[in-house]
Write a protein that binds this DNA or RNA. Structure first.
Length: 268
DNA sequence: ACAGTAACCTGTTTGC
DNA sequence: TGCAAACAGGTTACTG
């Protein structure tokens, strides 16, 4: 589920509900997530000073450190009345007075971690590549990265050390928009086409954020509404259907363990 | 340094 | 209908 647009949608939805508010309780119902959830009772009484996103991580800043949240494959965060009964997969609550921020994650690939250091220095974050919507992600940068390797271009743009936040859905859609075959070796694509791809990734992500992300199955925004970008998916999940541009049947195959869909006529 | 694979978990869909 | 296999938005850890 949650790629960059879904995490950013969540961040924007949650921010007005928790920024400046003091934590009044922490509930860990299931500590076995991607990594064990650490003790967090020291958050009681602490105010939220900032809420940021880095890659697909949500960073909730307090005076003495930062709570790092990741939604994994199936996670979502909701702002709910504090007395809402918890379901089977509601693993973690941060209570703020009569409201609570609740993590729901059936597959438990998500994470709740704590760091006392600047979050950018955390092991999981310090080695990440640039944000795709920042100036650092530009044609020269991606072309340089592409020249160093020879993996399929789809694997390159999904590699968090190259650029963050681009998961299977948005990599698939960006490559369609750029007219590049996802299996093409990344070092055999012209500078011009790589530059175009940078613009396409930006455009797809920005539009998806506008639409509140993509809801395929269970992604929910903080208030329970779905995203709407799935209505604009051109090839992802459409194997066998016709290309919206040329009418050719859309194909799909595994690239680096992930299903990838593309139009064999439009993408080379 | 790089590339490929297995692993972490559960729910839903697909195929026999 | 029932059951097992395959598959799903992510990322790390291990192997060669």
């Amino acid at each position: 589920m949650p790629e960059l647009p879904e995490v950013e949608t969540t961040r924007r939805g949650i921010e007005p509900h928790i920024l400046g508010k003091a934590v009044s309780g922490v509930v860990v119902r299931q500590p076995k997530l991607r990594w064990p959830v650490p003790p967090l009772h020291h958050l009681n009484g602490q105010r939220v000073r900032m809420l940021e996103r880095r890659a697909k991580y949500l960073l909730i800043g307090f005076k003495h450190g930062t709570l790092i949240l990741h939604l994994g494959m199936s996670g979502s965060l909701r702002v709910l009345p504090g007395d809402t009964p918890a379901g089977k997969h509601d693993h973690f609550d941060l209570q703020f007075g009569r409201q609570c921020l609740r993590l729901h994650d059936p597959r438990r690939f998500g994470a709740v971690l704590w760091t006392n250091r600047p979050p950018g220095e955390h092991e999981l974050i310090t080695h990440l590549g640039p944000e795709p919507l920042s100036d650092a992600f530009d044609p020269d940068y991606l072309y340089q990265q592409a020249q160093r390797r020879k993996v399929p271009i789809k694997q390159l743009v999904m590699d968090g050390k190259v650029v963050v936040g681009v998961g299977n859905i948005y990599a698939t859609e960006s490559l369609f928009l750029a007219g590049i075959n996802p299996v093409r070796a990344c070092n055999r694509i012209s500078r011009k086409r790589i530059g175009n791809l940078v613009g396409c990734i930006r455009q797809v992500l920005a539009r998806a954020i506008e639409q509140g992300g993509t809801t395929l199955r269970d992604f929910q925004r903080e208030d329970g509404r779905p995203g709407y970008f799935q209505q604009e998916l051109r090839v992802y999940g459409r194997e066998g259907e016709t290309c919206p541009v040329c009418g050719t049947a859309i194909r799909a195959r595994q690239i680096g363990q992930r299903t990838s869909a593309w139009c064999p006529h439009c993408q080379h």
